[in-house]
Design a binder for these strands. Sequence first.
DNA 1: TAGGACGATAAGTCCTACCTATCGGGATCG
DNA 2: CGATCCCGATAGGTAGGACTTATCGTCCTA
Lengths: 301, 301
Amino acid sequence: MITLRQLRYFEAVARHLHFGRAADECGISQPALSQQIREMEAILGLPLVERGARRVALTAKGTEIARRGLKILGDVRDLTDFARHGASVLSGMLKLGVIPSVAPYVLPRVLPRVQQTYPTLELQLRETRTDQLVDELLQGQLDLVLMALPTGEPGLDSRKLFEDRFLLASRAGAAVDETRLATPDQIEPERLLLLEDGHCLRDQALRYCGIARTERMNGFGAASLSTIMQMVANGYGVTLLPEMCVEVEARDARIALTRFAAPEPSREIGLVWRSSSPRRHDFDAFGDMLVAAIGETRSAS
Amino acid sequence: MITLRQLRYFEAVARHLHFGRAADECGISQPALSQQIREMEAILGLPLVERGARRVALTAKGTEIARRGLKILGDVRDLTDFARHGASVLSGMLKLGVIPSVAPYVLPRVLPRVQQTYPTLELQLRETRTDQLVDELLQGQLDLVLMALPTGEPGLDSRKLFEDRFLLASRAGAAVDETRLATPDQIEPERLLLLEDGHCLRDQALRYCGIARTERMNGFGAASLSTIMQMVANGYGVTLLPEMCVEVEARDARIALTRFAAPEPSREIGLVWRSSSPRRHDFDAFGDMLVAAIGETRSAS
DNA sequence: TAGGACGATAAGTCCTACCTATCGGGATCG
DNA sequence: CGATCCCGATAGGTAGGACTTATCGTCCTA
């Protein structure tokens, strides 16, 4: 197996293209470095360096391996930095925005883990609708937003974390046949209960059901999914419930959940940040942790 | 500095939560493993493992470090796999789709590098417009698409590679004042030359200029940027030229390029694949290589 | 043709990762 | 309550590997 020491030495050679100077930088003698490079070549089974007369060059594969090695060394450095003082990686202030149809379901699973893993991280939370979050992100009032993708904004980068399917929630034993897969045409517009205008979840549901804004619907718009699910339980109508909310919102025995026929409606939940932000590493680490936290609770349930 | 050997041992401890069995798996004695774990804790300056009576648990930070370590070990394995036979990473068939306004400018820089770095990779290319590419991607006829983001399709994952700004291309010395930053209202719709309908570049340009499809425009629609630039050079009109095309398409001295005032119009170029695809690793590696290839030629010029 | 730059080779030293043997403490059971 | 056992820590010794200095071989240059 290759060693990190070899990667460090090779990386120095790749930069200097000169054994002597690379050895110097590494604080060892030139033969020691030569030996490690040859050892590495033997392990990998191919030449990394072309020893030309008077000059040194990397082979084609050597270039690629140097690139990968550099990334690995960076990750190792991050790991030790994290261990030593949690510093430089996810420490200090992080202003996070979350949309209302995600916050109550994800944060309880994640926040304890954040406290434990990154005790020096001061997480400042903001919960509001997508367009407001995006505005505040662009203006620098937020560092990072957890929301449904895509953003549709240039200048923002994003990373998808997971897919969240929608289920049809209805009053148990009512009109919907719960033994079959649901289809969008079963949904009567006047019985569809949704969040008020401006929530992305509302738009996603309407798009799937093929309902234009203008069409006749009940004029109802709720501020929270909890309210909507109360209404569903009492037979006021039906709604599309994201899978991540099921555990919290669909405990009432009067609520029936039906999976949709393919193509199943869903939303992509992901992280969004300014492309220009220098904290990519932090966001990656934060995203990894979110995925881990969500994955755990899912497989555990 | 930490070693990969320590990471491997620690990872085994994290899985077994038992020093003896972990040592067994690593093929060493239990004291040897204990020693390396303690060495690692000394280097990182914190306890990774809670030695409780009768049972072993990871500390909070230990859990996070195990996660990071696992990723590093995976990257190292990928590196050696790549070196040994280029296998499992980017080998075999890869069907890549590219949009017409990107292909001629990116592929020449990238393909030689691909050949050299991944000689066992059979890259099969397809060039057509975005919606067609997305269809073929969803149906499995393509593995990967290089295009402008976002896709707007669920079930697809993407990764932004870089931002490609638009410049105003006009005939030198003609109506446009090249000493100042351009603004969209300077563009007369009837003089704007664009690709034919269906090209994403056309839609992006129209959106920036605030021109609705219905508005009066010249009826012209070209099949290639080359043609458009020929027309610009000869004074038939102006166009929005992506920065990546400048080197190839704007050599004619009769063409003047003007940067736009902020917010500069741009497009995001990225890779897109099916969320369900098992080849994430390949795509990551391919994306890294694209970024490296583009970065090189940019900084070199 | 002599000199110099540079990487490879050779021989010796020291560190470190490993082994076996043993200890110590907390749980478990008669 | 004491015997036992499970399991990680400690101790002491060994072998291999990473480093050193010294020297060689080769190619370029003057």
